[in-house]
């Protein structure tokens, strides 16, 4: 994901701002890291450059 995506995404649960914590980047994108809700503290993973912003219950169901 590009940093500019931060302008349009929010926490799917309470619509609060997210904080980006990048573990790995290339010239244009964040490849892996975490998005954390500044309100409820829920975390959302970024893997292979794609953030997973499903609510936690749906994320767990999709992984199963």
């Amino acid at each position: 994901m590009k940093d500019s995506l931060m302008d349009v995404v929010c926490c799917p649960l309470d619509k609060a701002d997210l904080e980006l914590d990048a573990d790995e980047r290339n010239e244009t994108e964040v490849l892996s890291g975490t998005l954390t809700c500044t309100e409820c503290g829920e975390t959302y993973p970024i893997e292979d450059g794609i953030p997973n912003l499903l609510p936690p219950d749906m994320r767990d169901e999709a992984a199963a």
């Binding site: 929010c10 959302y44 794609i50 912003l53």
Partner: peptide
Amino acid sequence: VVADLLSP
């Protein structure tokens, strides 16, 4: 983005 409709 992986998302449920418009939620995030």
